[in-house]
Design a protein around this nucleic acid. Structure first.
Lengths: 154, 154
DNA sequence: TAATAACCAACTAAAATAGTCAAGTAATTA
DNA sequence: TAATTACTTGACTATTTTAGTTGGTTATTA
């Protein structure tokens, strides 16, 4: 599990897609304009997202991309792993490269941690992210409304 | 919060330090040998770790590095943030670069996620990581022992 | 068939990662 | 105090990844 700007671009783009597709395909030019990510870089990212069944494509005029599952079924971990598809070889995989017990030990500790981070991000769906964000926006709004109410009632 | 091989090197090195320092300083050459990380790269990493008060150094013969706090007080997030010390500018910080409401929206969603990841890693101390790993090792050991017991009792 | 938008591949510039080298400084021990 | 050990610092380099560019092709729809 790696967490870099590349993953952030991908998560941002999928969030944009989820927010702007109302059951209609969203084309990459629009995402490119809204999120200020170059079209060709988006093409590279969406090629991987499509191969990993996170989005599906429709060609031709009026075409674009659609989520290939519900918002709640697409996890942040899924998106990030899709675009970072490199073999992510841990330096000591089982037997090779393992000079002594000590190296294996910290290697295992790192793998444990990596698994925990992956599990954590696998439990955050983009639907949940959006829902939580809307909730926070509502909270802020109602706290402003309350303030106004108190002020005017005095 | 970025999660790259650089951070992994740093966490691995601090774990090695925690495991091999029995209240005595550990020198970087030894960590370099055990973890197969180049000495000068370790020097760069530990320079940042020291400036962030994660480790302290003792010079001269028999010198090296010590943890600057207890195992349970040093979090994984702390280590990773120390070595990734770059300004990590988010593209749209508050007002600037924000073309329209949509960009701000996905930006906020990303910031939310980033905060959640940071909180998560801030709650994992290297002491906890090591303890959990020892526990798992014991579990595996006792399950083997149990198997042997069952087998021999038949 | 003309416009649109996905798909593809090779290439390049810039940045980050990983490592090297060399000349220091500080602390300890003999 | 001289020699040793080990950390400190900075400049430099190679490699990899990131991000973007160019120039196409294929499929679809109006």
């Amino acid at each position: 599990m790696r967490l870099t700007t590349k993953g952030r671009y991908a998560v941002t783009a999928v969030l944009d897609l989820a927010l702007n597709s109302h059951d209609k395909p969203v084309n990459l030019s629009d995402i490119s304009d809204r999120q200020a990510i170059s079209l060709s870089y988006l093409e590279q990212l969406f090629s991987k997202l499509r191969k990993n069944n996170i989005v599906k494509s429709i060609r031709g005029p009026g075409g674009g991309y659609l989520l290939n599952a519900s918002r709640d079924e697409i996890s942040v971990a899924h998106i990030i792993n899709a675009v970072n598809e490199s073999i992510e070889l841990s330096r000591c995989d089982g037997r090779a490269n393992c000079h002594d017990g000590k190296q294996c030990l910290t290697h295992n500790l790192w793998v444990d941690l990596s698994t925990r981070i992956n599990d954590f991000l696998d439990n955050i769906s983009i639907g949940e992210l959006i829902k939580q964000n809307e909730q926070q926006a509502n909270d802020r709004l109602s706290s402003i409304t309350n303030t106004i109410t108190v002020t005017t009632s005095q």
